[in-house]
């Protein structure tokens, strides 16, 4: 593996930095000496994050607010702004669920979920990849979900969008296979973040710090895809192998 790929500090953007896995990833990167660009919608949250990282770990932590539901021009301007000072790593954790996403919900909710979890993500990710290609190296990290690997009658549009995102990531890995550009995609199990707050779940929730640590540790490696925590792999494998007569009865 070349030096550039084994990079363990530099400039990284975390889109979704204000909460959950993104917040933990930004903290871990800052602790390891990376400069970060912190993104999500809330400017006040990002300012607080940036000040906190600077106070605890030093370094430069900029904020670049963006709404994934913004129009193409705004997404393009955002990606241009983030890459303008150089970028080595892009971690996109931003995503959204909706309690009404039951397969019957209105089109505007479906549009919103598809945009926030897939179309806007690949529009921005595609621009980051273009930057990496120009520079000859870089790592893009994306997040899918066990909901995509084992769909059920909840989070219907969300699971479809995350499935599309995982598929897009694999296509990009294939396209960029012989380059110094890494595309990594994780299927997350339950993580203890605002996304799962108050939900009674069948399996334990992982700490966002645990997930973030694994993600940051894998930055310099050729890791391509996998479940986090890893123990979800046999669980999802078992669920997928179940005959339909049993699968259709599962409430997970």
């Amino acid at each position: 593996m070349s030096e550039s790929r084994r990079r363990s500090s530099g400039r990284a953007v975390v889109l979704g930095a204000s909460s959950g896995v993104g917040r933990a990833a930004a903290s871990r990167l800052a602790r390891d000496g990376w400069s970060t660009v912190l993104s999500s919608r809330g400017a006040r949250d990002l300012e607080a994050m940036s000040a906190d990282l600077e106070a605890r770990y030093g370094g430069l932590h900029e904020t670049a607010p963006i709404d994934l539901l913004a129009d193409d021009d705004a997404l393009g301007a955002y990606a241009g702004h983030v890459t303008s000072d150089g970028l080595d790593v892009a971690i996109i954790t931003a995503g959204a669920i909706d309690a009404d996403d039951d397969g019957l919900t209105d089109w505007s909710t479906i549009d919103r979920l598809t945009t926030a979890n897939y179309t806007a993500v690949i529009k921005i990710a595609g621009r980051f990849l273009a930057h990496f290609e120009q520079q000859g190296c870089g790592t893009l990290v994306l997040f899918s979900s066990i909901a995509a690997a084992a769909p059920r009658s909840r989070n219907v549009a969300y699971a479809a969008a995350k499935s599309a995102l995982a598929s897009w990531a694999t296509s990009q890995q294939h396209r960029l296979a012989d380059t110094e550009i890494e595309v990594q995609v994780y299927s997350l199990g339950y993580v203890d973040t605002p996304m799962t707050a108050g939900q009674k779940l069948l399996f334990p929730k992982a700490k966002p710090e645990f997930v973030a640590d694994r993600v940051v540790q894998n930055l310099g490696t050729s890791h391509r895809r996998g479940y986090l925590p890893k123990w979800w792999a046999p669980i999802v494998g078992t669920i997928r192998a179940l005959p339909w007569t049993i699968y259709k009865r599962l409430r997970f």
């Binding site: 204000s18 909460s19 959950g20 919608r41 809330g42 006040r44 949250d45 607080a48 973040t193 108050g198």
Partner: peptide, 9 residues
């Protein structure tokens, strides 16, 4: 009823 806000919004 418990709320765990994560953002200023």
């Amino acid at each position: 009823r418990r709320h765990e806000p994560a953002s200023y919004g």
